[in-house]
Design a protein around this nucleic acid. Structure first.
Length: 290
DNA sequence: GATGAGCGG
């Protein structure tokens, strides 16, 4: 760069170590750092080519320690006068007091297959051997059965009302009911003292109050469906099937109601209803398999 | 004519 025959230009930082001339730097002696000495004076000696291509020596003097000293505690200052020990006593470490650790540190993932935690568990628990793929972790919170199904798939999940033995009625709720609110324990509104308990109808899962809507126009989205069905009663879920790739509506969707009666009224009212130039079909959805 | 995605303690 500096030796360019053409007009020299100032080197910008982005050009340093680039291949447009910077590679001549290897011809220069290495940079030398001296100190800091007892007065905190650090000297840096380096060489570079000037604009005319001449080798020049550049000496930089910096005051290091005086600045730092102002912030050092008495105790720290005292430590500085200690004789060197350990590695520092054996080496010249004036310019490298910090070292890179070569110690190998293994990070352990608690549930990684083959990890220690996993092996110990598998050895102790016979059930763990059966469901290595994580099935053992599958303990139904409704019926307590292990390794068979998730809570959401429990064959008893629709059974109502649930008995005290079941897990999803926290023991804390009973305590709260008898002795007032206990600190730090959330009690869902339905389990609070004085909450209405209207037996089977209330506790019933509403999965089957699912209404299928077909012949939707391309640009009907979930909010539109919600607007359309909301007047009939509380809606728990609105879904419009979309093509995963294109994002375009597939022209059908589902609406779930809290109450079956509302769903029924919606079907009766909206089936055959003209919406967005199309005639809607609204009917009971057959529950999704699985 | 057409029947959804995702998530695990």
């Amino acid at each position: 760069m500096a030796l360019d025959a053409g007009r020299p230009h100032k080197l910008r930082w982005g050009e340093l170590d680039e291949d447009d001339g910077g590679d001549l730097d290897f011809l220069l002696p290495p940079r030398v750092v001296l100190g800091p000495d007892e007065n905190g004076i650090k000297k840096t000696i380096e060489y570079r080519f000037d604009d005319e291509g001449n080798k020049v020596k550049v000496t930089t003097t910096t005051l290091v320690r005086k600045l730092a000293r102002a912030r050092l505690s008495k105790r720290a200052l005292e430590r500085r006068s200690w004789p060197k020990f350990g590695d520092a006593a054996r080496e010249d470490v004036s310019s490298r007091l910090t070292m890179v650790s070569t110690e190998e540190i293994l990070l352990e993932r608690p549930r990684a297959p083959g990890s220690k935690a996993e092996e110990t568990k598998a050895a102790g628990d016979p059930l763990a051997a059966i469901g290595k793929a994580g099935a053992v972790l599958m303990v139904c919170r409704t019926c307590g059965k292990k390794g068979d199904h998730w809570t959401s798939k429990c064959p008893y999940k629709d059974l109502a009302p649930q008995t005290d033995g079941f897990i999803d009625r926290p023991a804390a709720a009973e305590t709260a009911a008898s002795s007032g609110p206990s600190k730090g324990t959330y009690v869902p509104p339905g389990l609070r003292p004085g909450a209405e308990r209207s037996g089977t109808e209330m506790r019933r899962r509403n999965d089957e109050n699912s209404v299928r809507v077909t012949n939707l126009s391309e640009d009907t989205r979930e909010p539109d469906l919600h607007e359309l069905f909301r007047p009939f009663g509380p809606v728990t879920r609105v879904y419009v099937a979309v093509d995963q790739k294109t994002g375009a509506s597939r022209g059908f969707g589902f609406v779930n109601f809290v109450n079956r009666e509302d769903a029924e009224r919606a079907i009766n009212k909206l089936n055959g209803y003209g919406y967005d130039n199309l005639i809607l079909r609204v009917e009971w959805a057959t529950p999704r398999p699985n």
